[in-house]
């Protein structure tokens, strides 16, 4: 799929996500806006997945380790045909399968249950080991937040992935520089992240996590370094695409008022018009 189409889809997902969070009165909108371009590139350009056969043995695996941004995943899965579009309106409603964190036993397309941080990468390592043992060619992708990398379990998995030479594994760090309460740098700084991962034996690439061309290039097959797991550090903005949310720690899980919602929607509509005009 071409980059313009992907941008259109990402814009549509942002608008649906914003509406879902506004209507549900809860969500993690900041981290959702930061990860949506990555999710869009994966589901519409990179991943070999089939909504008609969500458990096909040779599918690519994606684990959204930052499970609190589940709404963005649900909207993306709906857009890709894994769940009905109209189901998004049930997000967080009593007995909806669209919980605040994704549940693989209920939602097709979800691979493992996430929510507590630092769980996705170890599971991703196991998936990549399984692919290797089966001599299968499917790939495993894990998306973590940046603050999430403060969890020690990630570093257990980072060491193991290098030890096992898991070159079918790609970690995408949604590096929006903010965690729930403050800047990552002011809390428990990860810098220099690329240097750390390289020293742990990973191939590292840094990209603009909102540049669709760069995301697609970094995640497409054939660019992996043989024998090394790959980390794509995607530099993003929390709340990206909505000016008054962007890079503001207050928008971790704040819910927009009606006025803010309408302003945000206008901004996203303008962005849509710009994408279409440029096409």
């Amino acid at each position: 799929m071409n980059v313009t189409e992907l941008r259109k889809i990402a814009n549509r997902i942002r608008r649906r996500d914003l509406r879902a969070v506004f209507e549900a009165g809860a969500g993690h909108i900041g981290g959702e806006m930061s990860v949506i371009d990555i999710l869009t590139a994966l589901y519409f350009h990179v991943l070999n997945v089939d909504p008609a056969a969500p458990l096909a043995p040779n599918r690519d695996r994606l684990v959204l380790s930052k499970g609190h941004t589940a709404c963005a995943l649900y909207v993306t899965l709906a857009e890709r045909g894994f769940i009905p579009q109209e189901e998004i309106s049930t997000f967080l409603k009593p007995r909806s399968r669209l919980n605040g964190h994704p549940n693989c036993t209920k939602v097709p397309g979800v691979e493992t249950n996430t929510g507590p941080l630092g769980h996705g990468l170890p599971v991703g390592v196991g998936m990549a080991v399984a692919a290797g043992l089966s001599r299968a060619s499917w790939r495993t992708f894990v998306i973590t937040g940046d603050g999430e990398l403060q969890e020690g379990s990630n570093w257990e998995a980072i060491m193991a992935a290098a030890q096992f030479k898991l070159d079918s594994l790609t970690l995408v760090v949604d590096h929006n520089r903010l965690q729930q309460g403050a800047r990552v740098a002011d809390t428990n700084n990860l810098a220099p992240l690329a240097v750390k991962l390289e020293s742990f034996g990973w191939a590292v690439e840094e990209i603009d996590g909102h540049d669709m061309e760069q995301i697609c290039k970094a995640l497409s097959p054939g660019v992996a370094t043989t024998g090394k797991p790959k980390c794509v550090i995607a530099h993003t903005n929390k709340g990206h695409g909505i000016s008054f949310m962007s890079d503001d720690v207050a928008w971790h899980h704040k819910v927009p008022s009606r006025e803010q919602y309408e302003r945000a929607m206008v901004e996203l509509e303008v962005a849509r018009a710009e994408i279409e005009e440029a096409a």
């Binding site: 691979e111 769980h119 998936m127 043992l133």
Partner: peptide
Amino acid sequence: GVGAGLANG
């Protein structure tokens, strides 16, 4: 976690 991933695979 690796155990869970292996089962998924």
